[in-house]
Design a binder for these strands. Structure first.
Lengths: 355, 355
DNA sequence: ATCCTCCGTGTAATCGATTCCATGACGGTT
DNA sequence: AACCGTCATGGAATCGATTACACGGAGGAT
């Protein structure tokens, strides 16, 4: 593979001049520039990014460590991150932690070893020493979706509190009172926050959230199945199960089907994180949708701000409730009108901006 | 960030010795080794992968360029690729082409600029000049899933021919005769092959595949929707639509629902590529499942063989039909027996190994 | 005509590792 | 005692770029 020396030789100039042409430095004569460009063309020369990075101390690369690639939510996030990064002249290297802290650490370590310019993380746990150390050492970092409390790193995430309130209002209006949740790992912020939001929303209706109605999941399908089986085996099973992510909802659906029950007739189901497939499941699943694309974009911008020396900003975007049929039929189908919410806290399907 | 010089200074040895310790070269005294290791530890030193790559001409990194991250099939492939690569001591950088040749080329170019050791590609098109050039220039390369004919690069893929025959047998047994397909782009091998396999399987039953029953898609949901709308508008719409990938099947489902029709009552649906969600759609979708995980593993092994100087091998694994309910009820539910295929070509749901 | 400035260019240092080669110490043979 | 091979070690070249610095020539100001 041709190097800058070959180009210099072919163009009859020094490597310095070649480099100047390539980085369009002003003081290069038109003649030299033309000869260099010609040589570049005919040799098919491409600068070696490795050598360049060594010298310049920057790779124009971002690392993105996500909790689970098989989760459509993260996949969409990854896509939007890559898109925005590409638009701003950066590449991104994705690391999939598979919800395992050791794998997450492995990725963080290799990414830092490769001297990526900055790191986007959706932490699987409460914060490994490695990550804390990296943050303290000054690696530009931004948390997306999940974060680690007490670490001074900007967070880009969505706030589901209002949407969870809307969801509970919706369920209450349908007459449901025994409401259960499949939580994510308590070590993750999204794992504990969603339970708290749910509990608070329930409290507004004087409904308690007993321990038996809190299933412990790990954001993966299998755990949703197990938690749901346990709910179903209860003397008084819940009327609705709210899964804290879409994969656990899938597992719940499995368990419900395996038990020979039907949604929403025998039991209702709702999920955090909306995905295209929820429109087509049997029945369509009521879900809380995050503005995933915007989240990805905002995260990249925050990180690049940080990298390029501008002050980065934390961003919180609202999530919204999307009502479908998995918790029961919403209203007697009134042929004309928009569904009118009752006097409960705002139950709405519309997007909210600037909460 | 500490460099090898800092370590050398702290340990009171030369950088050469530090390097020897780190790459466990035999001739280092136990004493020197201990001092170096101590210094490494106390400085939190990590070798700079960029500098190392520059010197050694290897990055221990693989590039993976896939056609669409939002497609669960590719997502699963990517995951298995990364897993196997990690097990073998390599990292992988994923590039998402979004089915657009220019983006694909962008990724191939940046990956080569970073001097990845090898490239795994599932080409979006019939072969851009860039890719051809890269192959000819000797970049270690392996095609996964899709490939470019006439290029001397190993291919790891699955053969759906038998499964498509099984599918047609299944449809025929259910009494369906008007069968349509939503094809992928003709420029991709999977785009054209699946149509051919379908046409041949149909021919075995004396059924033709008229042009009106071939929808032109691009492997994305939206195109599946449009193609299906066109089918439904036909004077004699098909009885079953076979989508050449799962995303187009999703689009088809959208279109069918929008038209107020029901699957399989009004129209049947089958898809290439099975995914967990197909179990829970309304109705569960009959699909052809690829051994995705094995494909990913085999591709990585082939590529690393090529990189490390062993002769790489093309691999073809069989796909298999998974019958669900989207094309009609399979059999009158006979309480005991396994469903007995009629005298048609083998209709089976079992996994086949070594075809 | 002299001097200064600016411009285009080349030489060489540098980034952080690996590795070839030279060197000196040590131990074993003869 | 002389010689030789082995081993641990350090010096320095190298990978392929960027960039500070030096230098010569051209042009403008005086």
């Amino acid at each position: 593979m041709a190097s800058i020396k070959d180009v210099a030789a072919a163009a009859g100039v020094s490597v310095a001049t070649v480099s100047r042409v390539l980085n369009d430095h002003p003081s290069v004569s038109p003649d030299a520039r033309a000869r260099v460009l010609g040589a570049v063309e005919s040799l098919g020369y491409r600068p070696n990014a490795v050598a360049r990075s060594l010298r310049t101390h920057q790779t124009r690369t971002l690392g993105l460590v996500i909790s689970d690639v098989l989760n459509p939510y993260f996949t969409e996030l990854a896509r939007s991150v890559e898109e925005e990064a590409r638009a701003l002249g950066y590449s991104v290297i994705i690391g999939n932690a598979d919800e395992q802290p050791e794998i997450q650490d492995h990725h963080v370590r290799t990414l830092i070893d490769r001297r990526i310019d900055g790191l986007l993380v959706s932490p699987t746990d409460g914060g490994s020493p490695l990550m804390l150390e990296a943050a303290r050492a000054g690696t530009p970092m931004v948390f997306v979706d999940r974060w680690i409390p007490g670490v001074d790193v900007p967070v880009v995430r969505s706030d589901g509190r209002a949407a969870v309130r809307d969801l509970v209002a919706h369920l209450h209006a349908l007459g449901h009172r025994r409401l259960a949740i499949i939580a994510g790992p308590a070590a993750t912020t999204t794992g504990s926050e969603r339970v708290e939001a749910f509990r608070e929303a329930l409290a507004a209706y004087g409904i308690a959230l007993p321990d038996a109605y809190i299933g412990q999941g790990d954001f993966q399908a299998e755990s949703g199945r197990r938690a749901t089986e346990r709910f179903l085996a209860l003397p008084e099973p819940p009327e609705v199960v709210f899964a804290a992510d879409n994969l656990m909802a899938l597992g719940a659906l499995d368990a419900i089907r395996a038990a020979g029950l039907r949604v929403p007739h025998d039991i209702g189901l709702a999920a955090f994180d909306d995905i295209p497939w929820f429109v087509h499941t049997d029945p369509p699943v009521t879900a809380i949708a995050q503005p995933t694309k915007e989240l990805g974009r905002a995260a990249v911008r925050a990180l690049i701000d940080r990298i390029e020396g501008r002050p980065p900003q934390s961003v919180t975007l609202p999530a919204r409730l999307v009502v479908r049929r998995s918790c029961g039929e919403p209203e007697p189908p009134s042929p004309t009108a928009t569904p009118t919410p009752t006097a409960t806290p705002t139950a709405t399907t519309s997007t909210r901006r600037n909460p």
